[in-house]
Design a protein around this nucleic acid. Sequence first.
DNA 1: CGTCGTTAGCGCCCCCTGCTGGC
DNA 2: GCCAGCAGGGGGCGCTAACGACG
Length: 330
Amino acid sequence: MCQLASWIDRGHSPAFVVVGGSAGPLYHCSVQVQPEGSVYMSGLHEIKLYPPHRPMDVKLQYLKEESLDVGTIESVSKNSEKFLQVDIDGCSDTSSRVSCLIDENSGHSFHEDRLDNLVNSQIGSKNGLPKGTWFCKVCFKTFSQQANLATHERIHRGERPFCCTICLKTFTQQCNLWKHVRTHTGERPFVCKVCHRAFSQQANLAKHMSIHTGERPYQCHFCPKAFTQRVNQVKHERTHTGERPYSCRFCGKRFTQQSNMEKHERVHTGDKPYDCKTCSRSFTQQSNLTKHMAVHYKNKPFRCQNCAKSYTQKSNLLKHAKKCPCVEVT
DNA sequence: CGTCGTTAGCGCCCCCTGCTGGC
DNA sequence: GCCAGCAGGGGGCGCTAACGACG
Ligand SMILES: [Zn+2]
Ligand SMILES: [Zn+2]
Ligand SMILES: [Zn+2]
Ligand SMILES: [Zn+2]
Ligand SMILES: [Zn+2]
């Protein structure tokens, strides 16, 4: 345990300390350094560097309490932003590193400079950010507009003031509620100019457009294949890495896709949800039913495209078609 | 100006689907 | 025929950034 870790371990808040890593609780030298009460941490997990051009001593401090000298900054990356990455003296934990907001000129972390600004959650220009920048006291995300910070802070407070009158589901933002309500009303304001398919959300229309443009922005890291959606790239890459995150509840067999696991679990449950309407056989997979249907179509080649009824003679199909609006024949 | 409601846009997770091919 | 592998693509939600009307 390094001196920072033991400092936090003694009960000090890790405020003003950010650490690199992915989502989830963050540890430094086995001590959790994630600020208490924070929920949404993605901004925090990005290590952002502020470029000082010389080595400097760094002090981390929790408001007016005891402060901790953590070390000296030796090397700094070039393309950096708001935070300064710090190597802790005598710390062997290289998996997570510590950063703090630094004033380029004084070398002080920002809260030493302007404690009153902290109260307002606003940072002055001396801290290397545009004057009037607002920040969240929980996760240190920064905002140029106070209103956007106010919206953000609802996330930490769990405040969801917008409520769907139909299903009572709640939302942090008005526009998210509006989007949600369209799932009840079926309203689809976004229409594809090419095929006229309509969508309830702009983002889903944008995804759809890749069908027409052929655009595949998500490239596999292991082979030349590319995909229209990131999810599908990740799914595909598992075929290279062998990762199988989903395991069967009954036998433990592992799968790359959740839906494949669910398909497999029906082997154990005996669930056959796909019924043949012609002979009342049922199947565990839709594709097996489709294959099976060929058996019926072989004997009755005249098939109504509308209702899938099939007939041995064309005249019977035509008779049927008088009632059914579809007259296509295979 | 600052405030505040609204809009644009991105990223993510989830789910269902259809084809395929080995046994 | 049963079952697993794999890709396509829509539904829905969370969040940030920015816009614009209005005091
Ligand atoms: Zn926050
Ligand atoms: Zn609802
Ligand atoms: Zn289209
Ligand atoms: Zn690949
Ligand atoms: Zn049948």
